[in-house]
């Protein structure tokens, strides 16, 4: 579907004050997956120029393709997580999330031990004691589960979000029309909407970005965790920021297709489960209890 048509369909007025060359280039930009490398390069240099003007510093936009033979998987040890939220803010800094309005890609939920786990939507996420962990509670961070069968992708009317062969569900912020169907479709509440123009001071912008990842976003688009695509989709690739931010080592990451990866080790040796297994979304985000059961 043409983006222009979709825009009209959504009833958005064209911002006439932006009727410059760059705007029309953006307007007629092809779908990301239909562009060849040269076209992508052109789009990227246009965006880099726009960002440089806006943030007064150089921001590089990568376009690394999925690595062959790689399917990313994530593990989270609920028996170790202490709910300290280091991951939340590590993610904010790495991925250029808006400070005001506040956007967090990771939400840490708190549950009372022994109680039935309530639904994700009604779980406590504002807890703020002096220190964690607290007796009698356990904590469950939730972020995009990178489903093998993602309902958000199916819901998107413009194909602005899709799953790449390495399993990462990505969003093209220049194709997203902000209809938020994907948010309604996501069973994990993992997508975030920019209700207002995102704000982040220039000196706090992480300039190492990926087109489909942490490059600065716009008002009216949806965003979410991408397993730190700008760090992980390299050979060698770094661990996601949240893995490195976790003080207790509850977060694990690796290649599900590599029999020697820590992901395969934990799947083999621990009983893992995934959220809302019954929906057949088939997430690549595995929760487990390393001890205690």
């Amino acid at each position: 579907m043409l983006k222009g048509a979709a825009l009209g369909f959504a009833g958005l007025a064209l911002p006439l004050d932006r009727a410059n060359a760059s705007f029309w280039e953006a307007f007629f930009q092809k779908h990301f997956r239909e562009m060849n490398d040269a076209e992508i390069k052109k789009v990227i240099s246009r965006l880099e120029k726009e960002y440089a003007e806006k943030y007064k510093k150089a921001i590089t936009i990568g376009n690394e393709k999925p690595l062959p033979g790689v399917l990313y998987g994530y593990g989270l040890d609920l028996s170790r997580c202490i709910g300290c939220r280091r991951c939340v803010y590590g993610c904010v800094e790495e991925n250029n999330q808006s400070l005001d309005p506040q956007i967090h890609w990771i939400t840490v939920l708190r549950f009372k031990k022994g109680e039935k786990w309530v639904d994700l939507e009604n779980a406590e996420k504002y807890y703020n004691p002096e220190t964690v962990p607290q007796e009698d509670y356990f904590y469950m961070p939730v972020q995009c589960q990178q489903c093998e069968n993602p309902p958000c992708v199916r819901a998107c009317p413009t194909q602005a979000t899709w799953k790449d062969p390495d399993g990462i569900v990505v969003i093209d912020y220049n194709w997203c029309i902000g209809c938020r169907y994907c948010m309604a479709a996501c069973p994990y509440g993992a997508r975030r909407f920019n209700w207002a123009a995102p704000t982040r001071p220039s000196e706090k912008i992480n300039p190492n970005t990926h087109y489909l990842g942490n490059r600065p976003r716009y008002k009216g688009v949806v965003e979410k965790c991408t397993f730190c695509i700008q760090r992980t989709r390299h050979d060698p690739g770094r661990y996601p920021a949240c893995v490195e931010a976790c003080p207790v080592g509850a977060r694990k990451f690796g290649n599900l297709l590599d029999p020697d990866s820590e992901m395969r080790y934990l799947i083999k040796h621990k009983r893992v489960f995934r959220l809302k297994e019954d929906l057949n979304t088939n997430p690549k985000f595995y929760y487990f209890f390393a001890y205690g059961n």
Partner: peptide
């Protein structure tokens, strides 16, 4: 803990055996 892991919106899940061979 074990009980609630069994309950709820989640199902315990044991991977396909082909995953666990190596």
């Amino acid at each position: 803990l074990v009980m609630c892991a069994a309950f709820l919106f989640i199902c315990a899940f044991i991977l396909h055996p082909s995953f666990a061979e190596s």
